[in-house]
Design a binder for these strands. Structure first.
Length: 420
DNA sequence: TCTGGGGTCCTTTAGCAT
DNA sequence: TCTGATGCTAAAGGACCC
């Protein structure tokens, strides 16, 4: 049996752990730049704050209803996530960490009653040790465990936060209940198409013809259908190396100036280089893209990217910047107001297995130089050593007006308990 | 004024070789 | 040498996830 464990309103719950005054209060957490809502407590959901809502459009509601607003604090959430996942790992060796707040677990050798007790103990243990509430869904396939998890969340009173799809009747009942759009793997486009056909519930989706599903929703859709029918097509995935690393940002305003854009692209590239070196990889392809503001209907929209093959695998920021700049000049068009840009490195290879090209050789001095720069930046703070292409004044600071403290990872921020 | 970021997998298409 | 069929690969874009 697969179990999907999901932390309830994870980011909001993290903020609550160290600030008990927030219990039962509506909370929202904002994306980078305090742009849009990416997490809501149940109370905030009840007040009608939608997922992905632009923060500036909801400021009045936040004030009116006394909704507590937080900038995202990834140091805190990452650390809390690791604590939760560690505990889950003590209850079964077969665990796939699917995202910051979700894991698939696999349980074998339990009878149904034994498993239920085991899961109850696991839930209690996580909540007691970390303060993060979780929901658990159990079923014979991953996709059905997602469905079961949804039921456990939707009916907390009746399920106690744990729901198991054990019988055929339970499976059918769940599918009759689940709206098409809430199926894991069905996004907005597929939803539109399926609803246009008059389908409303997951059950109707499973009654479609296999060939039709294959044709219109690819093998991914077909796998999904099989999974909902109870046939396992997905299995637990162990740790896999990243296939690409991205650094992308929206700008605070729109910019036309090539020198500004160049500075941004160089900075993104340097961050990609740091990430590559941290996981001891080199890349062989670098992709650079530019985009105008997609919300600005008055201006012409522009979106262009280009990928460049490198003559040798590298993680030297100096080399990467050289190629990124070349790529940028091919896609930059004067007169466009740019709002977002990014750099993605791919075709990653292990640093140890670097293949040397015959004629175009990397400068051997780069490797020790990068090592020293990384050490300095680690010891003395992120921006101790910069490259000439980067903006030395660091004027592109993110908006983070509602940031909480790093309670669990920074000694200065540790929580204080005062006697009254 | 103010709308995120980081991933995966799949399909389509164009270019090239056989 | 030309042509059409076929097959491979890589880039680009679209769908999805959290």
């Amino acid at each position: 049996m697969f179990a999907l464990v999901d932390c309830n309103n994870f980011y909001a719950s993290c903020e609550r752990v160290f600030n008990p005054n927030l219990r039962n209060q509506p909370i929202v957490v904002l994306s980078n730049n305090d742009g849009c809502v990416i997490a809501r407590s149940n109370e905030a959901k009840a007040l009608g704050v939608p997922m992905g809502a632009p923060a500036f459009k909801f400021e009045r509601l936040f004030k009116q209803k006394n909704i507590k607003v937080f900038s995202s604090n990834y140091a805190l959430y990452g650390d809390m996530s690791a604590r939760v996942m560690n505990i889950l790992g003590e209850f079964t060796p077969d665990i796939e960490i699917y995202s910051i707040d979700e894991s698939f677990l696999y349980f074998k050798g339990f009878d149904k009653i034994g498993l239920e007790a085991h899961l109850q103990q696991m839930k209690k243990c996580v909540e007691k040790s970390t303060g993060i509430p979780i929901s658990i869904g159990v079923a014979p396939t991953k996709t059905l465990s997602k469905v079961a998890n949804r039921i456990s969340k939707k009916f907390p009173q009746r399920t106690g936060g744990i729901y198991m799809i054990k019988t055929e009747e339970q499976r059918l009942k769940a599918l009759r209940w689940l709206p098409i759009k809430d199926i894991w793997g069905i996004g907005r486009q597929h939803q539109k198409r399926l609803e246009a056909l008059g389908l409303q519930r997951a059950e109707a989706f499973t009654q479609l013809n296999d060939d039709w599903v294959r044709k219109h929703m690819s093998v991914v859709g077909l796998r999904l259908k099989k999974e909902l029918e109870g046939e396992q097509t997905l299995s637990l995935e162990g740790f896999v190396d990243k296939k690409a690393i991205a650094t992308t940002r929206s700008f605070d305003y729109e910019y036309k100036d090539l020198s500004y854009i160049t500075e941004r692209i160089c900075s993104f590239t340097i961050v990609c280089g740091e990430k590559l070196r941290r996981q001891e990889s080199c890349c062989q392809t670098i992709y650079v893209f530019l985009r105008s503001n997609r919300f600005n209907e008055k201006a012409a929209s522009y979106s262009k990217g280009i990928s460049v093959q490198l003559p040798y695998p590298t993680n030297s920021s100096l080399d990467l910047v050289k190629f990124a700049k070349k790529a940028l000049h091919k896609i930059y068009k004067p007169g466009i107001a740019y709002k977002k840009a990014g750099v993605i490195v791919s075709k990653l290879t292990p640093q140890s297995a670097k293949q040397t090209a015959l004629f175009t050789e990397e400068n051997p001095k780069h490797f020790p130089l990068m090592q020293q720069i990384d050490i300095l930046n680690q010891s003395y703070g992120k921006h101790t050593v910069k490259f000439g292409n980067q903006d030395l004044k660091h004027r592109w600071k993110m908006h983070q007006d509602h940031l909480s403290q790093n309670y669990s990872t920074k000694l200065d921020d540790i929580i204080e308990i005062k006697a009254i």
